[in-house]
Design a protein around this nucleic acid. Structure first.
Length: 780
DNA sequence: TTCAATCGTCTTTTT
DNA sequence: GACGATTGAA
């Protein structure tokens, strides 16, 4: 791509007279010069870039130069002086996409991108806005962003207090429902009564409300809240909204087909200012319906933005003829489409290969044989990818790679920041900076082992809850009493002192040194050094890596923000390795050779998708197939196994129905699957037996919930009520009288001899004189 | 409170 | 067939 200086418009020579006649150039009169970055684009692309006013929807099929259009459009806006970098809002879904966009704009226009503060993911931009106006949504600007772990822990506590059987109603299930509501922009009071019954016999919405309340108490938000609270901020503060509407005059959205309702509302509010919106997407690549993405958003675009211009990018620059034909034929089976016809000027190329295997091991063996052959013919491993439907399929391939000594990388695998040791370490940092972060404190209070187990934690919780204070503060009070056993008391005192020390050091030393100090002094490093398990060494490595990554940030707080928002680790793209990933994480990537494995009914299309969403689910799976095929530039090979082991048991499988949808003209069967008499035969009679065992599906669970609803819905006391009871008991707790007789669970009866705030000194009849906290005693 | 052993559950995809 | 949660013993 050509490099252009920042002052492009002024310095470019008026070299291309012919271009002025180009109909696609509908620039305002003052920009008659056609800048060089518009060369070598096709007409549709150029139109998508130069239509700057009003709303534009760019329907960009796979491999049609979508990112190029987006980045060039931004360059064009800047070059024509329409807006300054700080006035352009460019939203992506992944950090990877944001990073790539930033670097490609950089190549186009130079260093100016540094000044594009509003280029990022929905979540990152929302977080940025929220920090600025935190107090308007009952937070402070130092709010923390909870990870899934914290979320589950918090919900477990709520369920516990509510006396809901966690076996029957798992916390992660509730988390999923809450997430779902948030994706749809629903605050607790907006959740329909009927929907509340999906969880714990109608208490779903109430639990959601409790959860939100706890988050506010903790000065925390979860992922969904970033958008939802931002939305609330805009809706409730019109002056704030109009400030952003005026500033962000040009809005660009990547992967518009993946937006959920909350994101859609968010965008709409911002776009109502100037209305210069450009959304780029492909309804055929919408594969995130399960997490709330609404294909409807893209299908409805012209309705939502009246007068919107729709540009179709249909020329594919990526794949050869056979591959593109196969992909198009599969996706043509979908009903709900805006419709695009991809075409290529490339040659026919090789046909899509199809091969059946006995089981997953043989599948891995065959694929690896092909790979080795490609390697011998001089193809780079980097240009080879294996795409699977579900991550458990990766194991067979990894085993094979290790046996053969082939280098590989897993893309989108367990993320760095999600690792146990990284989370523990960041929990220490977070608890140091923010002593009221109960969840982080709780996470590490007994890691490494300090003898502070469940019973100690329970005491802390009881006290903290009754006083509505953070755990660490409760701990501070309790260590001055004799509520705890001496060993625990000593241990907890030491821990608190350490935190105080670290906190005091926070401004006095570089944050990386402080981090190392914390990990060493807390005994966390030692814990892993003493661990003999094979994983310990790599955990220590990860801790070192963590410190190294921290150097890129100028403070601990800044680093922690990134840990919670930046989801993907930096791709080590240098070495030559095979790429192994799920179909979902393959979106947006391309490779010369692509292996698509596990095309079996039940796995792909995935059974659960069919159970949950029926025909719509099938269509989404089919889009996934389309995404998979269109990743390939030169070669695509589909494999399926006849037998696959799922949790120990061997299960028979039949080839995917998507295989039936491939046109025979574009496919070459490499080796007939022994049992099926080859490719193309009808096999739907066998499906009945295959599809049994649907107990435990969500449909079944809903039926169960409905049944339960018919029964008793007697309301257990809400958490709110419980808090109130405790509060009323403790509100006037400080006015215990000297000499008053009291009862304590552990020490029995006694008389108060001294009152010191909420700490009481009591002469117990049996236990002698003890210091206790007032919330643990009751009047006798 | 901790450790070890057992039992049951789960495996789609992720910002 | 792996991980988590729960249980019982030291």
């Amino acid at each position: 791509m050509q490099k252009i200086r920042t002052n492009t418009a002024a310095t470019l020579p008026d070299s291309d007279e012919a271009a002025d006649k180009d109909k696609a150039l509908s620039l305002s009169a003052r920009a008659m010069v056609r800048p060089a970055y518009l060369d070598s684009l096709n007409e549709a692309q150029r139109e998508a870039i130069t239509e700057l006013d009003g709303a534009v929807l760019v329907l960009a099929g796979a491999g049609t130069g979508k990112t190029r259009v987006l980045t060039t459009r931004i360059a064009h806006i800047l070059a024509t002086g329409r807006a300054r970098p700080g006035e352009i809002l460019a939203v992506t879904f992944t950090n990877k996409a944001a990073r790539e966009m930033r670097s490609r704009i950089g190549t186009l226009i130079g260093a100016q991108v540094e000044g594009m503060p509003w280029l990022g993911t929905f979540h990152a931009i929302s977080a940025r806005i929220l920090r600025r106006h935190a107090e308007l949504v009952d937070l402070t600007s130092s709010f923390t962003i909870l990870d899934t772990d914290d979320q589950i822990r918090l919900l477990k506590q709520l369920l516990d207090v509510e006396n809901i059987d966690e076996k029957r109603w798992p916390a992660r299930q509730l988390a999923a429902y809450i997430d779902n509501w948030k994706n749809r922009g629903l605050l607790p009071d907006k959740v329909q009564d009927g929907e509340s019954f999906v969880f714990a016999e109608g208490r779903g919405a109430a639990l959601y409300a409790q959860y939100q309340k706890r988050l506010k108490e903790l000065n925390a938000v979860d992922f969904g809240d970033l958008l939802l609270e931002c939305l609330r901020l805009f809706q409730e503060n019109s002056s704030v909204l109009s400030e952003y509407q005026q500033r962000l005059r040009y809005i660009l959205v990547d992967e518009y087909q993946d937006t959920n309702v909350a994101q859609y509302l968010w965008l709409r509010l911002l776009a109502q200012g100037g209305g210069n919106v450009c959304c780029v997407g492909d309804d055929d690549q919408s594969i995130y319906g399960w997490r709330g993405a609404e294909v409807g958003n893209i299908l409805r675009f012209e309705h939502d933005f009246p007068g919107a211009k729709v540009v179709r990018l249909e020329q594919n620059y990526r794949s050869t003829g056979h591959i593109l034909a196969a992909a198009s034929a599969v996706i043509a089976n979908n009903q709900d489409r805006l419709g695009k016809t991809l075409h290529t000027e490339d040659s026919e190329g090789e046909k899509v290969k199809l091969q059946g295997c006995w089981d997953d091991e043989e599948e891995a063996r065959c694929v690896c044989e092909d790979i080795e052959q490609l390697q011998r013919r001089g193809h780079a491993l980097n240009e080879i990818a294996i795409l699977v439907r579900a991550s458990f399929q990766m194991r067979a391939f990894e085993d094979r790679f290790v046996t053969l000594g082939l280098d590989y990388r897993v893309i989108g695998g367990p993320r760095f920041y999600e690792r146990l040791e990284v989370r523990d370490a960041t929990a220490y940092f977070e608890a140091t900076l923010n002593p009221s972060n109960d969840l982080k404190f709780e996470r590490i209070i007994n890691t490494p082992r300090r003898g502070l187990g469940d019973s100690t934690l329970n005491i802390l919780h009881t006290h903290a809850r009754s006083q509505s204070i953070p755990l660490m503060q409760a701990a501070r009070t309790l260590v001055e009493t004799e509520e705890l056993k001496p060993a625990q008391r000593r241990s907890l005192t030491d821990l608190l002192a350490q935190f105080d020390r670290w906190r005091a050091l926070a401004d006095k030393m570089p944050h990386t040194e402080l981090a190392e100090l914390i990990l060493d002094e807390s005994g966390y490093t030692t814990m892993w050094q003493n661990d003999k398990s094979p994983k310990a060494a790599s955990r220590l490595d990860n801790l070192k890596e963590l410190i190294r990554v921290m150097e890129d940030y100028d403070s601990l707080a800044g680093f922690l923000e990134h840990v919670s928002l930046v989801m993907d680790r930096d791709g080590e793209n240098g070495e030559d390795m095979i790429n192994l990933m799920t179909l979902h994480s393959a979106k947006g990537l391309e490779f010369e050779t692509v292996f698509l494995s596990g095309w079996e009914d039940g796995l792909f299309p995935h059974q659960r998708s069919l159970d949950e969403s029926g025909a719509a689910g099938l269509e989404e799976e089919r889009r996934l197939a389309h995404v998979g095929l269109t990743r390939a530039k030169m070669r695509a090979k589909i494999t399926f196994a006849q037998n696959r082991r799922t949790h120990g048991l061997w299960q028979q499988a039949i080839p995917s129905r998507f295989i039936d949808e491939l046109p025979e003209a574009n496919v070459e069967v490499e080796q007939a699957a022994s049992q099926y008499g080859g490719y193309g035969m009808s096999r739907f009679d066998e499906q009945e037996s295959f599809l049994t065992g649907d107990y435990g599906t969500p449909g079944w669970q809903r039926a169960r919930a409905r049944k339960a609803k018919g029964g008793s819905v007697a309301a257990a006391p809400t958490l709110d009520a419980e808090y109130r009871v405790i509060a009323s008991e403790t509100a006037n707790g400080s006015d215990f009288q000297l000499g008053e007789r009291i009862f304590h669970q552990k020490f029995g009866y006694g008389a108060i001899t001294r009152i010191d705030g909420n700490k009481l000194t009591v002469d117990f009849d049996k236990a002698g004189q003890k210091k206790v906290v007032d919330s643990f005693v009751e009047r006798h």
